[in-house]
Simulated assay, not measured.
Amino acid sequence: MTLTLVSSGDDQALAIRDHLLPLVREGGTLELQRDAIRLLALRTGAWTVEHWTPFNDLSPEEASSPGYRHAIERQHTRPGLPYGLEVWRAGTKLLSILWADGGEFEVLDFARGSWEAEALAL
C-alpha cells in the first residue's frame, strides 16, 4: 500500500492572500474604523474581499501609553493574530485567514475549488 501525503493548502491560501491584499488595500473602501478594527472591503462583481487591521485612533477612554498596551498583550495566552482577510464569492465564504507581523498565521476556513484560480486572476 502506498501512502500519499496531502498538502494542507496553507501555501495556496497564503498565495491568494498575498495576491489579494494589495488589491484590497489600493482599491478597497473603508467600511469600519471603530474600537480595535479598521476594515477595508473590495467589492467587484460576485467577489467581496475584506481585510482588517488593528490600527486606528484611540478613543478618549483608552490609555495611550506603550506600557499599558504591553500589559494587555501579556494577558493573552497565545500571540495575537491582528490581521485578517476573508474572501467571499456570491455570498459564500471561501477563505478566512489571520496573521501577525512575525509570520505566524492561521487558516480558519479554506474551501478548495476552481475559485482559487479565478481569485488569482483578479
Rank of each mutant, 00 (worst) to 15 (best):
Q75P: 00
A15S: 11
E116W: 04
L108F: 01
S65F: 03
A63G: 02
D11W: 00
L81N: 12
L98G: 02
A13S: 04
D101I: 08
R38E: 14
S8N: 05
V87R: 06
G27Y: 14
E31H: 10
A46F: 05
R38Y: 09
T77D: 12
E118L: 09
Q33K: 13
L85P: 06
V49Q: 10
H76Q: 13
F105W: 06
D109K: 13
P79I: 09
A36I: 02
A90M: 05
V6L: 14
T44Q: 14
E118W: 02
R43F: 00
L40E: 07
S65K: 11
D109V: 15
A90I: 07
A46G: 15
V87E: 04
T4H: 08
G84E: 04
L21V: 05
A63P: 02
T77I: 12
L42M: 04
L122I: 10
R34I: 05
H51S: 06
S64D: 12
T44K: 08
Y83W: 12
L21C: 12
Y68H: 11
V6M: 09
L85F: 10
G67K: 04
L23I: 11
T77W: 08
Y83S: 06
L21E: 15
A111P: 00
G80M: 11
A15H: 02
H70R: 14
R89Y: 03
A71G: 11
I16T: 01
T44G: 03
G103V: 01
D10L: 06
E61N: 13
I72Q: 11
L30V: 14
R69V: 01
S114L: 00
K93Y: 01
W99T: 01
G91N: 06
T48W: 05
E86K: 15
G67E: 12
A46C: 05
G45H: 05
A13L: 02
D11G: 03
T2Q: 09
P22R: 06
I37S: 15
E62D: 09
R25W: 06
